[in-house]
């Protein structure tokens, strides 16, 4: 009975600890991201502004996803473990907030939080932010797992993954038929759905690229680069053949109505994004799950 109670109490201590971390995150969020001061300075009304709620809650969700990989094993004392987790949480929070700030600067450089969320209540904009927050969380989680508790390795891989994700975000305009900035400013949902699936597909590929055994840093990073490059070559191939095999067609006159007709734009955005996501999943199978190394035959 004592042991059961002991374990239960430790879990309660950890639950309180996580709540403290989240409380700290709330204020750290304000320090690194001063634009969102209204989100924390006053009680947040979830019913007043849907884009704002999505924007705010997606950041909390991202942080929780990021924190979910942290493991606790009773090798050390409870105090030692809590200090370790605290330091880890600080590093994760800072890197996560800087990352999402960077991604917004890269992808949504023409927009700002005040105008789009508080004034215009642009749900399309907040959906894109939501997708970026989730993507960054999953990628940081992978990088943290691969950095073997080394801050230098973590910073190197973090910068690397941010560059690759930023590049992927920038390349969206070459993939999509939507005029990205114009569509967002017109609150077009199609572009938001298309971007959501597009960035999730890219995140999946990047997570798979980073999730390989690393022995030597140079060769590991080079391998990631080549895996991503070969993915870039296979994705258009699959996009073309998926459209061809399943006879997915769009009439040319309907394509011109993308920015005018909201229903058609959502329809098109979802289709465009999902085709990318399907292609990304098949590509990841081709690039990552077919292991061609190590088969030597002797002459």
């Amino acid at each position: 009975m004592e042991e059961v109670l002991d374990r239960f109490l430790i879990r309660i201590i950890f639950a309180i600890f996580v709540c403290l971390i989240l409380f700290l995150y709330r204020y750290l969020h304000f320090v690194i991201y001063p634009k969102g001061v209204k989100q924390i300075s006053t009680p947040f009304n979830l019913m007043s502004n849907l884009p704002n709620s999505l924007h705010y809650l997606s950041r909390i969700l991202g942080m929780v996803i990021l924190f979910s990989f942290v493991e606790f094993n009773r090798f050390f004392t409870l105090e030692m473990s809590l200090i370790h987790l605290f330091l880890l949480a600080i590093v994760l929070m800072i890197s996560y907030l800087i990352s999402i700030h960077l991604m917004e600067m890269i992808v949504l450089y023409k927009f700002n939080y005040k105008d789009e969320i508080l004034k215009n209540q642009n749900l399309s904009y907040s959906l894109i932010i939501f997708s970026l927050n989730i993507s960054v969380a999953f990628l940081l989680k992978t990088v943290m797992l691969k950095s073997n508790d080394s801050l230098i390795i973590f910073i190197t891989l973090w910068l690397y993954v941010m560059t690759l994700l930023g590049l992927a975000g920038k390349l969206f305009i070459y993939y999509s038929k939507f005029q990205f900035n114009r569509a967002i400013s017109q609150k077009n949902f199609g572009v938001a759905f298309s971007f959501l699936f597009y960035i999730l597909g890219n995140t999946y590929i990047l997570v798979k690229a980073f999730d390989q055994p690393q022995i030597e840093k140079y060769s590991y990073m080079l391998r990631i680069f080549f895996k991503c490059f070969s993915s870039c070559l296979f994705i258009p191939f699959f996009i073309f053949f998926i459209k061809f095999i399943f006879s997915l067609r769009i009439k040319k006159n309907e394509l011109n109505q993308l920015l005018i007709d909201p229903n058609k734009s959502v329809n098109f955005g979802v289709a465009e994004g999902l085709i990318f996501l399907i292609s990304a999943y098949i590509t990841s199978w081709i690039v990552y799950n077919i292991n061609l190394s190590g088969l030597f035959s002797i002459l």
Binding site: Y218, F226, F229, C232, L233, P236, S293
Partner: peptide, 19 residues
Amino acid sequence: FYFLSTLLFLTLSKLLAPD
């Protein structure tokens, strides 16, 4: 563009591939 990208990939792999 696709053909040139493939060519670039093969060249870079040949020059830099860790293997």
